[in-house]
Computed example of a mutant assay.
Amino acid sequence: ASPDYRRAKILVKRAQEALPDLQVRQATEWMGHRPALPDTVPAMGPSAKRRNVWYATGHGHLGLTYAATTGRLMADLITGVQPPVDMKPYRVHRF
């Protein structure tokens, strides 16, 4: 079996551990590309066009991994607190 098929079976097994009544009768595999920013660096900051709109996007496959850090940085930005890191590399309008 392919590595992707084995991985899919593992995901189903883990889902069934969490949801014992889950029944998987027919499943198909799909693998595609996730959208990402050209430099692969997240974009975080205020919208230039809309007041009170803030962006925190472009984390690629690491959205869950970066969630707590992104939340902290966004909270600082939104409340006007100086973030503990230089936010210039993450500016929304860098492209």
Rank of each mutant, 00 (worst) to 15 (best):
A67I: 09
D39T: 11
H33M: 08
R34T: 01
P20F: 03
T28K: 14
A68I: 12
L62H: 11
P42C: 04
T69R: 10
K49C: 03
G60L: 01
N52P: 01
W30L: 09
E29H: 14
W30A: 09
Y66T: 14
Q23H: 13
M31P: 00
L64F: 15
A43N: 01
V53A: 08
W54G: 02
M44P: 00
D39F: 07
A27M: 15
R34I: 03
H59W: 04
H61Q: 06
G63V: 03
Q23V: 14
P38M: 02
P38H: 12
P46S: 03
T69K: 05
A67E: 08
Q26V: 13
V41A: 04
T28L: 13
G58R: 03
H59V: 00
P42F: 00
Q26S: 13
A27Y: 14
A36N: 06
A27R: 13
A56M: 12
P42H: 02
Y66M: 13
R34M: 08
A48R: 15
R50P: 00
P42D: 04
A48Y: 02
P20R: 01
T57D: 02
L37C: 01
S47R: 11
Q26A: 06
Y66N: 14
H61I: 04
Q26G: 06
R25S: 04
V41Q: 02
H59M: 05
T28V: 14
G63W: 00
R50M: 10
L62N: 10
Q23F: 02
G60M: 01
W54C: 06
Q23C: 09
N52T: 03
T40C: 06
Q26H: 14
G58N: 03
L37A: 10
R34V: 02
V53S: 06
T28S: 13
R25W: 10
A36S: 04
H61D: 00
R51P: 09
P46H: 02
W30Y: 07
D39E: 10
R51C: 02
L62K: 12
Y66G: 01
A27I: 06
P38E: 05
V24H: 06
G45M: 05
L37N: 08
P38K: 08
G45D: 01
L62C: 10
Q26I: 13
L62S: 11
T57F: 14
L37V: 15
A56T: 08
H59S: 01
H59R: 03
K49W: 09
A68E: 13
M31A: 12
T65G: 07
M44L: 15
P35T: 12
Y66I: 06
P35I: 04
W30I: 06
T40V: 11
T65I: 07
A56D: 03
